[in-house]
């Protein structure tokens, strides 16, 4: 089990799009080395939560990352602290090549040898990256683009990786492959993961802790096996 030291602590986190408040003050804890799932229906605020954490969406409240307040930091500075974000739609740099996407992932690393070492390591997880490194990333299949987005996020040697619906639109076999890799990354490299998912069953099987969002509020939270084991909760909140 991961040690129970908080890597990320969000308190009374609000987020708004113009006049409309989309997140009404949530509290969220992500322990060092853990995998935390963020569940909920479409429009419940999963994406907004992740965007609020990185600063891509206007937010207020408090977000401590490794005991440091990040509210007020621009997204590029949040990234530099070691929070990688795989956004909704994967954020593929589609006209750039696969290698250029990965190189951009390592943008914050100043040492070219470290970039090289990261690349070698990721090629071990995703061998096809090496074969297709010169191809435009936009020509990859959806599943490959998702894996590329994860690989790109891992290039910066993040301490925390935020994943927004990595399973969206992908075949089940691809999803289980991606989740398997996430588990490996978490176990072997100690990368902490916060994953927003609609696929509750898969996400609960992966995660240690889970939060269920409902219209911008936390409706429920707890260890994932408790949530998955409670039929009442599964039926009313998770839809399976």
């Amino acid at each position: 089990m991961p040690p129970n030291v908080a890597l990320l602590e969000a308190r009374a986190l609000h987020a708004r799009y113009g006049e409309i408040e989309a997140l009404h003050g949530i509290n969220l804890d992500v322990a060092q080395g853990s995998i935390v799932a963020l569940l909920g229906a479409n429009g419940s605020g999963k994406t907004t939560t992740l965007r609020a954490l990185t600063g891509a969406t206007r937010r207020s409240g408090s977000i401590l990352f490794d005991k440091r307040e990040v509210i007020g930091h621009a997204p590029e500075d949040v990234a530099r602290l070691g929070i990688a974000h795989v956004p909704e739609g994967r954020g593929t740099l589609s006209t750039l090549s696969v290698w250029e996407n990965l190189a951009m992932g390592a943008y914050t690393l100043t040492d070219a040898r470290r970039t090289r070492a990261r690349y070698e390591k990721l090629v071990a997880y995703f061998p096809w990256l090496a074969e297709r490194r010169e191809q435009p990333a936009g020509l990859l299949s959806g599943g490959e683009q998702q894996m590329l987005a994860i690989a790109r996020a891992l290039m910066m040697e993040p301490r925390l990786i935020l994943l927004d619906e990595p399973s969206l639109g992908l075949a089940p076999i691809i999803v289980s492959r991606i989740f398997e890799i996430l588990r490996t990354i978490n176990r072997d490299d100690g990368v902490t993961i916060l994953i927003a998912e609609q696929n509750a069953a898969a996400a609960l099987a992966l995660a240690d802790q889970a939060y269920v969002l409902e219209t911008g509020r936390i409706a429920l939270s707890g260890p994932s096996h408790d949530l998955a084991g409670n039929e009442q909760i599964r039926k009313s909140y998770l839809g399976y």
């Binding site: 990185t54 891509a56 621009a74 997204p75 590029e76 500075d77 990234a79 530099r80 990688a84 974000h85 956004p87 954020g91 593929t92 740099l93 006209t95 750039l96 250029e100 190189a103 951009m104 992932g105 943008y107 914050t108 790109r152 910066m156």
Partner: peptide
């Protein structure tokens, strides 16, 4: 060059580039 690549990425994909730590 790395800066050249970052300039291209920032021009075409500003939001993604920001999440990668680029000062767009």
């Amino acid at each position: 060059t790395k800066v050249g690549l970052a300039m291209r990425a920032a021009a075409l994909y500003p939001e993604s580039s920001r999440t990668l730590g680029v000062r767009v």
